[in-house]
Write a protein that binds this DNA or RNA. Structure first.
Lengths: 130, 130
DNA sequence: CATGGGGGTTCCAGTTAATGGAAGGTCAAT
DNA sequence: ATTGACCTTCCATTAACTGGAACCCCCATG
C-alpha cells in the first residue's frame, strides 16, 4: 500500500507519516522503486498515532503505547504497569474533557441567547474546578 | 498575585505563562516594579488553558473558547454556534479516549501475565475502530 | 546598612512535532 | 512520448514551548 492510500485511511498527511518513519515510530517496507510499502499493521499504528496525538499524548507516550503492542514478550509485570499508568492518564483526560464539556454546555444552555450581563456562567467560572 | 504563585496554582511553568501573555491569551496587569500582577480571572484562564492544551486543543481553539467567556455580549447566535461546534469536538475527543481506554484495558486484562504468543489483543487490534 | 538568596524581568537560542516547498524520479493512460 | 497524479529527498519554516544568560527587586539576617 502506498503512502497516499495510507494517508487517506489513517487521516494523516503524508508529510506526517514520513516524519513518523524518520523518528522510528513506524518502519514501512520499500518497493524496488523506492516507494514506501505499508502493511496493515502500519496503518493500524498510524490510526492510533493520529488519535493519540490529537488527544494530547506526546510522541514519547505514543512510542511507549506502541511498544506495548509490539512487545513480543508482553507477559511481564512491567508492561502491565506501564499500561496501567497510561490507563490512569487516560481516565484523567476523560474527566478533564467532561469538566470542559459540562462548563461549555452550561454556557450554551444558560447564557447564550438573552444577553443579560449577569450571566450565571460567570459565577460558575469562578468555581471552575482546579 | 505574582507569576510564581500563579504558576503553582495553574500548574503551568512560568515560561509558558509569559509565552501566553506574549501571544495575547492573557493580559495580566503590571505592578510599579514591572512585575506581572495576575487577577483571579487570569488564573482561571490559565487553568483552563493548561487543561485544554493537554487535551489537544490548539492555541487557536483555546483563543476561541476564551473569547466565548470574555464576550461581554454573549447573546448572539454566533457564540452559541461556536460553542456547539466545540462541544461536538469535545464529545468526539471523549469517545476517542474511551476507545483507547477500552483497547488498553483489554490489553491489560487479557494479555499481560501469561506470555502466550497468540494474545487475543492482536486480533482485537486488527479491528481497532477506524 | 550591605549582602545573599529567592523571587522577578527581557531577550535570544534551541527543541519538538510537524508543515511547506523545491527539484526531481515513477507509473498508468492517452 | 508526454501528461498528470503520485512518489522521493532535502532544506526551510512554523507552532508552542523551553533553557539559559544577564540583569533587577525585595526582604531577612549579621
Amino acid at each position: 500500500m502506498n503512502i497516499g492510500e495510507v494517508s487517506r485511511k489513517a487521516e494523516l498527511p503524508a508529510k506526517t507519516i514520513r516524519y513518523y518513519e524518520d523518528i522510528g515510530l513506524i518502519s514501512p517496507l520499500r518497493d524496488t522503486n523506492g516507494y514506501r510499502s505499508f502493511r496493515d499493521s502500519d496503518v493500524h499504528k498510524l490510526v492510533f498515532l493520529g488519535r493519540a496525538r490529537a488527544l494530547g499524548f506526546t510522541i514519547e507516550d505514543c512510542r511507549n503505547l506502541l511498544a506495548l503492542w509490539d512487545d513480543q514478550d508482553r507477559a511481564s509485570a512491567d508492561v502491565r504497569a506501564i499500561a496501567k499508568e497510561h490507563l490512569a492518564q487516560i481516565e484523567s483526560k476523560i474527566s478533564d474533557l467532561q469538566a470542559i464539556r459540562d462548563t461549555l454546555s452550561h454556557l450554551v444552555r444558560e447564557c447564550a441567547g438573552d444577553g443579560r450581563p449577569d450571566c450565571p456562567i460567570l459565577q460558575k467560572l469562578e468555581e471552575f474546578p482546579t
